[in-house]
């Protein structure tokens, strides 16, 4: 090879490099317009997808780079003597450098970083929209950090995730009537599949005889109560309140929903109760009567909640374990 030839070919190569700064594909294809749905941001992942991810989440869309047309690349340089006689595309292949779609590809947590940056950008964009106080914002169940880790397959730190959740909560506080569609779309990614308030119980009905039914449970007892308008008569399992409950405290518990709201002289109760003991049955009746009363007067719900007639007490007897005397009690320690 003559001396002049070498210098010429070097010059050509430099030229070629200058003309294809990203030689493997077109620029447009390499950098697709960023949308705030960051589903297209992840082009390549070198890690093996986990099973849990495949089961739980739909994997994000993988956008492959467009194919490189080697013939076209080489045709440009066919006039040169340097490329003649060599296998096609070798030169281009040599000059090829794969650049990932996301600039944070080489960071430890590219997806999370992208998500975070996107949300920050979105918040900057909508920061001026009017907001409602957090207590009035719609209730949203965000994904937990574990769920997010499984979705992204990245070891996201809890603290950083919480920073992201803060941004999401701020976005959620935008006034519901003015919230842009893209914010709604962006928040969708971070919500749990089931939101609170998704399942709504059927509203209670007062039947043609004026009865409203309520069901309550406590410990191992359960109770059904039918409440009608009346003068304060109570029958439990066909017996009067005094006959059925020996203790005054239990009698008061059974009709506490009516007593706490000063409705004892306005309704009659007919109830059935089974299972458990006396106190459990009385307190199951509390809930049952309260639920039936709510059908008649739904506005009483806050008052009944304050009286403690709405919340089901979930405690039950703890099971006995082997090696223990009771649920937790251990046998007495003996030296020998």
């Amino acid at each position: 090879m003559a001396r002049g030839e070498l210098s010429r070919s070097l010059r050509q190569a430099l030229e070629a490099l200058r003309s294809f700064s990203r030689p493997q594909c077109h620029r447009i294809a390499r950098y697709p317009p960023r949308s705030f749905r960051s589903s297209t941001t992840r082009c390549m992942s070198t890690s093996v997808p986990r099973r849990a991810e495949l089961v739980d989440e739909t994997p994000e869309k993988f956008a492959a780079a467009p194919p490189i047309d080697f013939a076209q690349e080489d045709g440009k340089g066919s006039g040169n003597g340097a490329g003649a006689g060599k296998p096609v595309g070798k030169k281009t292949l040599r000059t090829l450098r794969v650049v990932p779609a996301s600039p944070s590809y080489f960071s430890a947590k590219p997806t999370f970083t992208d998500d975070f940056i996107n949300l920050c950008a979105l918040l900057r964009k909508v920061a001026t929209l009017p907001t409602v106080p957090p207590s009035e914002a719609p209730k949203v169940a965000w994904k937990t950090v574990d769920q997010y880790r499984i979705m992204t397959n990245e070891p996201v730190k809890t603290q950083r995730f919480h920073k992201m959740i803060h941004i999401l909560r701020r976005l959620n506080c935008i006034h519901p009537s003015l919230i842009p569609d893209e914010v709604v779309q962006a928040m969708q990614r971070y919500k749990k599949p089931n939101q609170p308030g998704d399942i709504k119980p059927n509203p209670g009905v007062i039947d043609e005889l004026g009865r409203a039914k309520g069901v309550g449970q406590r410990k191992t007892s359960s109770a059904v109560a039918w409440v009608v308008e009346g003068e304060g008569e109570v029958l439990v399992n066909g017996k009067s309140l005094a006959q059925f409950f020996g203790r005054l405290h239990d009698r008061e518990s059974a009709v506490w929903a009516l007593k706490a709201t000063q409705r004892l002289d306005k309704y009659n109760v007919w109830a059935l109760t089974t299972g458990g003991g006396v106190t459990g049955q009385a307190e199951a009746l509390t809930l049952a009567v309260a639920k039936a009363l709510l059908v008649h007067e739904p506005a009483l719900k806050p008052a009944l909640r304050r009286a403690g007639c709405i919340t089901r007490d979930p405690r039950k007897v703890e099971r006995k374990k082997p090696g223990h005397v009771k649920a937790r009690k251990m046998p007495t320690w003996v030296k020998r």
């Binding site: 304060g232 008569e233 009067s240 005094a242 008061e252 009709v255 007593k259 004892l264």
Partner: peptide
């Protein structure tokens, strides 16, 4: 009176 009457089993 009604409250006592009810709690006393009618």
């Amino acid at each position: 009176v009604t409250e006592k009457w009810s709690l006393a089993g009618m």
